[in-house]
């Protein structure tokens, strides 16, 4: 059968692709490392020669030394671990809260069209409002501890989830609906068997953004007050003029954000296996 030979051929092509891919990957990683070396080298050159003054930009080597000290402190469970952990929990709770709240609101709006029409403009308007403007109010309502940070994170991160949930539940193919109707599917069966799986890629696009936004919200929350977290460390470093401390904390935030976002991407690839992408 022709179909069988098609499959064999495509397998052979896949194997060929894999060989190429490995070589390409090695080269890409090499170039990426080179980029880091060049940037850090230039940075070191400009600061070591005092072309850029030390009070504006610390030496790259100093930042690396401080970063290493902080990493050791985190691994050995020192004070830095407490800050690292605090921010991590805030981001994760903010993300989970955004997913629960965002999917719920999005699903309700998608299911009850009149409600969506009534409310959607305000959702868009709220989304366009800089959420940081609510920071003082959130402090009044929720105080200076964890809670206000998580609330800030949710305030920032829930919107992409809401918008994507509505889009995803509305994205069902007309032909799919026609098929389901021809097979006598109930409304619940259509939702469960077709609309939810169809929405999944959209939901994950929302989740990915939500994870990054949750990190933004958590750091804003820490800037509002309190005494823990990597955002707080940056703020403290600024007051003490310890710029290397600030850079190190920012690097740690960047790593947290990267890893957490990656976890969502990995989950998406597992669950939405039928859609390939380049991310």
């Amino acid at each position: 059968m022709t179909a069988k030979s098609d499959i064999t051929q495509s397998k052979a092509l896949d194997a060929l692709d894999e060989d190429n891919a490995m070589g390409r990957l090695a080269r890409t990683v090499g170039l990426q490392v080179l980029t880091a070396v060049i940037v850090l080298g230039l940075w070191e050159l400009l600061t070591a020669t005092e072309i850029i003054a030390g009070y504006l930009l610390p030496r790259a080597s100093d930042v690396l030394i401080t970063f290493w000290r902080d990493v050791v402190d985190i691994v050995t469970g020192g004070r830095m671990w407490m800050h690292f952990y605090t921010t991590l929990i805030e981001i994760v709770l903010g993300f989970i809260g955004s997913v629960i709240i965002g999917v719920s609101i999005g699903a309700v709006l998608a299911e009850f069209k009149p409600l969506e029409r009534a409310v959607y403009p305000y959702v868009v308007a709220a989304n366009a409002t800089p959420r940081i403007a609510f920071a003082p109010l959130i402090v009044i309502w929720f105080g200076f501890d964890y809670t206000s940070k998580v609330v800030m994170a949710i305030a920032v991160a829930a919107f992409p989830v809401i918008v994507n949930t509505i889009a995803g539940l509305g994205a069902t193919d007309r032909d799919d609906l026609r098929l389901m109707r021809s097979l006598g599917a109930t409304r619940l069966q259509v939702l469960w068997r077709v609309r939810l799986p169809t929405a999944l890629p959209y939901l994950f696009a929302g989740f990915e953004t939500a994870m990054l936004f949750s990190a933004v919200g958590a750091v804003i929350g820490e800037f509002m007050g309190g005494n823990a977290g990597l955002g707080y460390v940056t703020l403290l470093a600024q007051e003490l003029f310890r710029l290397d401390d600030a850079f190190s904390a920012i690097a740690l935030l960047s790593i947290q954000g990267f890893v957490l976002h990656r976890l969502v991407v990995i989950a998406r690839r597992r669950l939405v296996f039928w859609q390939t992408d380049s991310v």
Binding site: D173, D175, D176, R178, L179, M180, L183, G184, A185, T186, Q189, R193, V194, P197, F273, W274, Q275
Partner: peptide, 19 residues
């Protein structure tokens, strides 16, 4: 009109799960 998250067999079986 096959559902991409279902295998060939699961797609053929779909009508049994509806109604």
């Amino acid at each position: 009109v096959l559902l991409p998250w279902r295998t060939t067999l699961e797609n053929v079986f779909l009508p049994a799960q509806l109604g």
